[in-house]
């Protein structure tokens, strides 16, 4: 992979133990950049795994979400956790964050959960 820039913009090649020592390094400096995931998706597709590519593209979108939100959406997608309305809210939030593929995934889940009785009944 040619692209080595972290989420923060720092180039991975520039990361040194001295920065760790100085307390100058943050987790964002060792966090993957969405462009890298998009490039990895291209590699996966080129090697014939469209589903892995799709996963990397969803992941690229999720890089923008804070850890807590990622964990909260996962929790919401578990069976009998969310009402149709709650899932719709998540879909909208994902769309607003530019996470179209994840929004589609959650929208699809909402549809199937309704069919299979996996929504939370209040």
């Amino acid at each position: 992979m040619s692209r080595r820039n972290a989420w923060s913009g720092m180039n991975a090649a520039d990361i040194t133990i001295d920065q760790v020592r100085a307390g100058a390094l943050q987790l964002d400096d060792v966090r993957i950049h969405p462009d890298t995931l998009i490039a990895q998706a291209d590699v996966a597709a080129e090697y014939g795994n469209q589903q892995l590519a799709e996963n990397f593209l969803r992941a690229a979108e999720l890089t923008a979400l804070p850890d807590e939100q990622v964990m909260a959406i996962y929790e919401a997608l578990r069976p009998h956790r969310s009402t149709a309305q709650e899932l719709a809210t998540i879909v909208n939030a994902l769309k607003a964050a530019g996470a179209q593929r994840n929004a589609a995934l959650v929208a699809e889940a909402a549809q199937i959960y309704a069919q299979r009785g996996l929504l939370r009944q209040d």
Partner: peptide
């Protein structure tokens, strides 16, 4: 099977999302 999946407190969609969650953090 669907029953065991739900007993395991997940669905294919929650797992797909989780999978991307991991990839999103490299």
């Amino acid at each position: 099977t669907e029953q065991i999946f739900i007993d395991g407190d997940d669905t294919p969609w929650s797992k797909a999302f989780l999978t991307s969650g991991y990839a999103s953090r490299g």
